[in-house]
Write a protein that binds this DNA or RNA. Structure first.
Length: 418
RNA sequence: CGGAGCGUAGUGUAACGGCUAACAUUCCCGCUUUGGGAGCGGGCGACUCCGGGUUCGAAUCCCGGCGCUCCGACCA
């Protein structure tokens, strides 16, 4: 992509109306546009990152054997009344169909997915099965906060699994937990993300959250570094500690952001909605369910925040909008020719490059590159003398390459991703 | 939803109840410049969030709304 054609611009100042670092950075760098509290538009650079996070998560879901679908935002109240989740829940954004009838905007999709599965599960032969989607959710939060961390509209991956019995659900639950750890590892968040014991709600004693250490996070967790396990403050008490064999004095208290949550729903929703299967003996049984979420847009915020410094953003290679930011410093035919040549070759090699071909001063381009945070910054200038210098966003060391050796070097980096 | 703060060009700030609402930056034109947000000159850009009120006069004071941020409650 040529930066001269990129419509979104970075700003000189941080926005006045944000305190959370993730929103300050993403707005200033032109990745998102704020619309309302907790509601953001994703601009080209922000959407590239969001899509790369989605793709990474999608690949892991496919590896779990889950199949992707897309359910509607608009929800039919009837099925929600059957599980008792339509009335007295103020998460809903509710509205009306002009022709008559109420609707609500989906804040989760258990009822909807069961409605689908009732048409598709009837025999033990149809189980187990797992379905996921990546879709915008709407929650009428009392208070949106912390930039992208708690929004009223946000992108989420939600996976629903269906099982013959509790043992199979338990098995799958562990598989998903493993898959989630893999996802956070690949995102570069593995070291600061903890599987965390949390309340299981009405249907189980415990659920697990995946909590990433983050200053803007709104949760507080107690970490056992040895066990790579944490306890959410909402269930932190002596009984919990005893049950998990932890001692208060060996735990560290930290603020964190919930990036994933896994739940054994068992028959909480399948039963009231009548999701049954016939077992081998022809007897009707209730389907066991699990549900597993990952906050995709929240991850965008967490990654922006965790990997930024005073100069700006610093994207991990796996989710960066572009691998390389190539700056042309100065106006000169030979330099332009060199940069263009590299740009063409990189595109053929599948290396994504943001080419700063704008007529801006060197200082302007350099600080913009730091602000936007591509993993590698390449420079063509009179100092590079017919070659190209390369620097990682995370270090100060620069190396000089010829065009071809740089292509090889970057191809190598690219092939190691994923 | 309780409490606190805030709302002025695209962005960030300023302005005692009183001149044509100021400054920086962005943007446009010209010249100059290119390894850390360069320089000089010229120019565009605001119904001061909305609606009422007080006043000879309101960005400024008062009332009501809306919006944003933070603290708390909430997070199914």
């Amino acid at each position: 992509m040529r930066q001269s054609l990129l419509f979104s611009k970075s700003r000189h100042n941080f926005p006045r109306d944000e305190v959370a670092n993730n929103a300050k950075m993403l707005i200033r760098a032109g990745f998102v546009n704020k619309e309302l509290a907790g509601i953001y538009s994703y601009l080209p650079l922000g959407l590239l990152v969001l899509n790369r996070i989605s793709d990474l998560v999608r690949r892991e879901m496919n590896n779990l054997g889950a199949q992707e679908i897309l359910m509607p935002t608009i929800q039919n109240p009837q099925i929600w009344k059957e599980t008792g989740r339509w009335d007295n829940l103020d998460v809903w954004f509710k509205s009306k169909i002009n022709a008559g009838g109420d609707i609500g905007l989906g804040w989760t999709h258990e009822e909807n997915v069961i409605n689908i599965m009732k048409n598709n599960i009837s025999s033990y032969r149809d189980l187990p099965v797992a379905i996921f989607q990546i879709q915008n959710k709407f929650r009428n939060e009392e208070r949106a906060k912390s930039g992208l961390m708690r929004g009223r509209e946000f992108l989420m991956k939600d996976l629903y699994s269906f099982h013959l019995n509790e043992e199979d659900l338990d098995d799958y639950y562990e598989k998903v937990a493993h898959s989630y750890r893999l996802i956070f590892d690949k995102l570069g968040l593995g070291d600061i993300t903890y599987q965390t014991v949390a309340s299981g709600g009405l249907f189980a004693k415990w659920s697990h959250e995946f909590q990433t250490l983050c200053p803007s996070g709104e949760d507080q967790i107690y970490i056992s570094e040895k066990r790579r396990l944490a306890i959410n403050s909402e269930v932190y008490n002596q009984n919990t500690l005893t049950e998990f064999g932890l001692k208060a004095e060996e735990l560290l208290s930290r603020s964190s952001c919930e990036v994933g949550n896994i739940f054994k729903l068992k028959t909480r929703f399948s039963e009231p909605l009548g999701l049954y299967y016939s077992d081998q003996g022809g007897e009707n049984k209730v389907v066991q369910m699990g549900c597993f979420g990952i906050g995709i847009s929240r991850l965008l915020g967490v990654i922006a925040e965790v990997f930024s410094d005073e100069k700006g953003l610093s994207w991990p290679e796996v989710v960066a909008p572009f691998l390389v930011h190539l700056l042309i410093l100065g106006e000169d035919k030979e330099m332009t020719f060199l940069a263009e040549g590299f740009y063409q070759k990189a595109q053929k090699a599948g290396i994504s490059v943001l080419l700063d071909d704008r007529k801006e001063s060197a200082g302007q381009k350099l600080s913009t590159a730091d602000l936007l945070g591509m993993p590698y910054r390449a420079i063509v200038s009179k100092n590079t003398a017919g070659r190209i210098s390369l620097k990682s966003r995370k270090s100060d060391k620069e190396e000089i390459f010829s065009v071809d050796s740089l292509i090889n070097y970057l191809s190598d980096i690219k092939s190691k991703l994923c």
